[in-house]
Nucleic acid binder design. Structure first.
Lengths: 338, 338
DNA sequence: TAAAATTTCGTGACCAGTCACGAACAATAT
DNA sequence: ATATTGTTCGTGACTGGTCACGAAATTTTA
């Protein structure tokens, strides 16, 4: 009784067909030089003819690597970050595993990554505060790169200088003559909101100004971000807190704020100036187009994946931090106060 | 000379430590009933103590499955689709592999999926026209579910009825009194634009109306979508084609159109009515809030992953097509023409 | 022409699990 | 007390690759 399942050909099937030993087939599979050019060609032809595909389970078992890079996202569900990241990973011949986790499930996620023999980890976790050695210990030796601005880490990361970005925004508003500058931001447990909030505070108090009202929302999803912007403005108005300009944590928050201002008959930029961060695709198409600080996600993704690949291939890779400096794109949402 | 690498404990290490055979350990690992309750507990304790994690490569090799579900996206880079999908996949104990591909690389992607012994495939490929048996042949027996409205397929898919959705939109505009209804859509090779375009055409000609101008853009990314809406309106105005209402293929296209109309001093809905599809988070926060047909991505993702899991676990699963019927959400972007 | 060096390839051990088979022992039925 | 049944567990074969070692064949050198 023969097994009639449509089994895939193995390395030994190919060897038999080609009249060589399985070792030789393994060699052509791994581009090992110890094989004569014409036998290599012959075997490659046979493999193509039989539709041979290497069994990745077996390969994992012996080599302890999986040709997978895992992209772990924590506490944030933008989605948009992934597609380009995946392109860079796949272009390098790896597959992309995507995981979301919370602070509690983080250790499990990393354990599973180790069990999967993942070759590298890209981490996007703007809320995660962790000592380098703790993170390394959890990673089981898997190379890791953070796609974040992580001031206190000596591991490899890529991110925009948040203090500098905030300074651009605040200075622009001050130059225009604004003295009551509000902010609508996210949880101060997140790195970026925290850094921007602190910078905002520092710059204004350095000018002898009272920091304008501050609203802490949630920008972990697009829908929440818009809602936070909307509710932030409502909170300011309800509490009667004066402001002539608002700095929002991203463009979608600005969109919500814009809508709320409009509902109250406040015009941007005539009555209120609005500045945000990211320069998402929507920013130039809001009415009025948004003054914002472009954070190029694509560049960050490209650099992060590039550094990770270098780290994977170079056994004595030296971690380094790549700080990007943003510009300010001035559009029509800012103007001197009346 | 002992190997001092920090090797992970194997099933046999656990067995030795627990004083049983490796077969027994394998049994507790797989919840096999043939093991006494107290030995099971004992072994579980040992495993926890040693930090044992099953080697997934070895498991793949013998079981021919990987506990991975692959989400393949083709020709489209929304990104937003993924996060929720991943949650459902992960909640079922699978890892999520994310791949993007084009029509050319599709076969390779599926071959690689087979080599990875992926347990199931979720396919989001609104542009892919392929006969069921061809698709099945490419899948190497891996269960597959499409997250799409694929009229001519008897395989499993989930999607909103596009003709019905279009009818809602057009009927709404007709009821308001519009007679010159334009459309800004995407490539007619895509299933949804094609079906909507045809329905738009049919309904208007059935009313004895001349179909309004049509612009074919590209909504494969958010940025392109907005730009297409913008350029569509410009094209209409430049060519002097009259219209009192526009049906756009999604909310971001509508956003671009809104911006272009505003630039030309045309007010929505006073001068032009605007309707779109999706009800993305931005739709209620545009000015004016957008009348649109909500396509609940979350439901589609949940159903698609649910059907896939059923198909994976049930050997004689019968494929079926799940058609969702949308509503129309009327906001402030539509009004009778002047 | 023989010795040495190089190229090319076969062999076997190994990776860490799974699973069918049957043995040992205890529990129940006759 | 013996036969039968059921529970629990050990054993060995197997999955499909990788890699080090050494043998044969071929080329280069003395």
């Amino acid at each position: 009784m023969t097994k009639q399942r449509n089994k895939r050909p193995t390395i030994r099937d190919v060897a038999r067909e080609a009249g060589v030993s399985y070792g030789t087939v393994s060699r052509v599979l791994n581009d090992h030089p110890d094989v004569a050019p014409d036998t290599r060609l012959h075997i490659q032809r046979i493999m193509a003819k039989m539709g041979y595909q290497r069994n990745l389970g077996a390969q994992m078992l012996t080599t302890h690597q999986s040709n997978i890079i895992e992209f772990i996202v924590m506490d944030v569900y933008f989605g948009l970050v992934l597609p380009r990241m995946a392109q860079y990973i796949n272009a390098a011949g790896y597959s992309t595993l995507y995981s979301e986790c919370t602070e509690e499930s983080f250790a499990d996620t990393l354990n599973k990554a180790a069990a999967r023999m993942v070759d590298g980890i890209l981490l996007y976790a703007p809320q995660l505060h962790i000592a380098d050695q703790d993170l390394l210990a959890m990673c089981h030796g898997i190379p890791i790169v953070r796609r974040d601005y992580v001031l206190d880490s000596k591991l490899t990361w890529v991110g925009y200088n948040q203090e500098y970005a905030t300074r651009l925004v605040i200075q622009h508003l001050l130059d225009l003559g604004h003295r009551q500058i509000a902010e609508i931001t996210g949880s101060l447990d997140f790195i970026n909101p925290r850094l921007r909030h602190d910078t905002w505070l520092d710059l204004l108090t350095a000018q002898g100004l009272e920091p304008g009202p501050s609203y802490i929302g949630d920008y972990s999803t697009v829908a929440n971000a818009i809602k936070s912007g909307y509710e932030g403005v409502y909170a300011f108005l309800q509490r009667g807190e004066p402001f002539t300009a608002i700095m929002t944590v991203n463009d979608h928050v600005a969109m919500g704020a814009l809508f709320a201002l409009h509902e109250h008959g406040l015009r941007v930029p005539d009555d209120v100036s609005l500045v945000s961060f990211d320069d998402d695709a929507i920013a130039p198409y809001l009415i009025p187009p948004l003054t914002t600080v472009p954070f190029d996600f694509d560049i960050q993704n490209r650099l992060a994946s590039q550094f990770l690949l270098e780290q994977i291939n170079d056994p004595d890779y030296k971690p380094h931090q790549h700080v990007l400096m943003p510009d300010l794109v001035i559009r029509q949402s800012t103007r001197p106060p009346k």
